[in-house]
Design a protein around this nucleic acid. Structure first.
Length: 149
RNA sequence: GCACCGGAACGGUCGCUUGGAAUCCACCCGGGUUCCAAGAGGAAAGUCCGAGCACGACAGGACAAGGUGGUGGGUAACGCCCACCGGCCCGCUGCUGGGUCAGGGACAGUGCCACAGAAAAUAGACCGCCUUGCCGGGGCUUGCCUCGGCAGGGUAAGGGUGAAACGGUGCGGUAAGAGCGCACCGCUCGAUCGGCGACGACCGAGGCACGGCAAACCCCACCUCGUGCAAACGCAAACAGUUCUCGCUUGAGACCUUCGGGCUUCAAGCGCCUGCGGUCCGCAGGUUUGGGAACGGGUAGCGCGCUUGAGCCGUCGGGCAACCGACGGCCUAGAGAAAUGGCCGUUGCCCCGAUGCUCGCGCAGACGCGCGGGUGUUGGGGAACAGAACUCGGCUUAGCGGUGCUCGC
RNA sequence: UGGCCCGUGGUGUAAAGGUAGCACAAGUGGUUUUGGUCCAUUUAGUCUUGGUUCGAAUCCAAGCGGGCCAG
């Protein structure tokens, strides 16, 4: 941590396995950005993890590989600017729609916008849950006044 | 149109996967860091054929089902490749050259051939042509000619239909005709010669019989056991299954009894198990609606199969070629929500524009202008189709650039 | 990855190798004060490319597109 931040992208930062994608999508925190849509969900680990889901409608295998590598490169280069604190590091699932492949900078801005949106969503959710636990089943009315803000 | 070749290269930097080495953390499993090496294709694609490999089945044979189909060769094998033969098309004509063909059998049998047409398959006869008899009319040279009708016979030349009409053209022949006869061509059969063979050349005979469709059923010859690396094999959570086990002592009560005892409930103690706790002590709970152990099968998961192979490169030799042999050298991707990427620079390739030099042709004949080719400088642009998933040999499809030959404009 | 099936107007569906139909939809005209109903009429198709055949939606081959199953 004392060193300069490095831009690695190892196996621990990838979503792996058949069962890893479904809970993230079922968490229903999604930011739709046209060409790509990002689902997010806090995990209990120490760092953000990302998984890319790209269907056959996006093109042939070579084209799908190309888009996937661009998104991965965009995530790799901007991983330290993305939020990974507060409600926790996130598991991300990027859903790729059918589109013409974009440039690297375009993917970086879209990814950052989506991450900000998801981060805000989860901050709101955790604040609401803390409020309801603080005053159990007495006041469902004061949803818009969470304490501590 | 055919054949062949290429599918960018180098460097820097940030990353990914695999392998190796060093080092650090960790009881083990494993993980981190640094360095080094390697890292998509001609189609990796479609999954259309053929194999290897794995498992299951299988004495042998036959049937069924599917596939292939000129001949000879190549190959591990093929529906692939090479050479040749034959048919068709194109060009040329002094030679033959190029393209293309699922190219066995229609005397084994069954079936189909719409419409049109007289007739569509052991031929048959609508209009015709010719002829005989009878009846009627006309003509005149009075026994012939001609016209019409009815009945009978001979023909298949001509007509029109059709994709296709039972050899074609010509001459002879005939009442009219007809392979009825002859010549050439086609067809069938036979002999000889050449060729491993498909077949070809040539000679003779037959007077023509045998329409087309088998990518219609079918017959003949040959080939094929089925399933597929998510195969197969190893380790193995969870859930379910099977088996075993859950004790000892004392006291009290109920029941049975062959009076030896058996069975069960409650309470206490010892033992055992679980949790708290670093350990002992201790505390709490459990000790048959539950717990523990073992077993085989095996899911998730992990490993293996997994990359040395009918392999690649070079030289020499054999063969018309496909291909084969000998020798030498090389090791060259192994992922698993799935690794080969991003950025920068230089060079090479292609296109466009500007410009310099040079060559050829045309106009002009002094300069010059236009077109085409080669080469240099500079600016801008582009680079397709497409990503290994067990591995090979082919085919097909997608698609960029170049070279050579040929054809057309 | 492996296996199986199917492609006919815009939609749904027929058609033994011999003229591609039917219904709904769409367009135009008529009927009606207008709309609907009804009547008449028009447009539009065999997934693509080759081959067999006199002739192909049908038979054969290759490709393209879509769907289903195993895991």
């Amino acid at each position: 941590m004392s060193d300069e931040p490095r831009f690695t992208f190892g196996r621990g930062q990838k979503l792996r396995g058949r069962g890893a994608f479904k809970p993230v999508i079922d968490a229903r925190a999604c930011s739709d950005g046209g060409a790509i849509a990002v689902h997010g969900c806090p995990n209990n680990g120490s760092a953000n993890r990302i998984g890319i889901s790209i269907g056959r409608r996006a093109g042939t295998a070579a084209r799908r590989n190309r888009i996937k590598r661009m998104i991965r490169e965009a995530y790799r280069l901007s991983q330290h600017e993305l939020p990974h604190t507060a409600p926790g590091p996130y598991d991300l699932v990027v859903i790729v729609r059918a589109h013409e492949p974009l440039g690297l900078d375009e993917y970086r801005t879209r990814l950052a916008d989506a991450m900000r949106h998801i981060h805000a969503t989860w901050q709101k959710r955790t604040n609401r849950r803390n409020a309801t636990e603080a005053k159990p089943r007495t006041a469902p009315t004061d949803l818009e006044s969470p304490p501590g803000v």
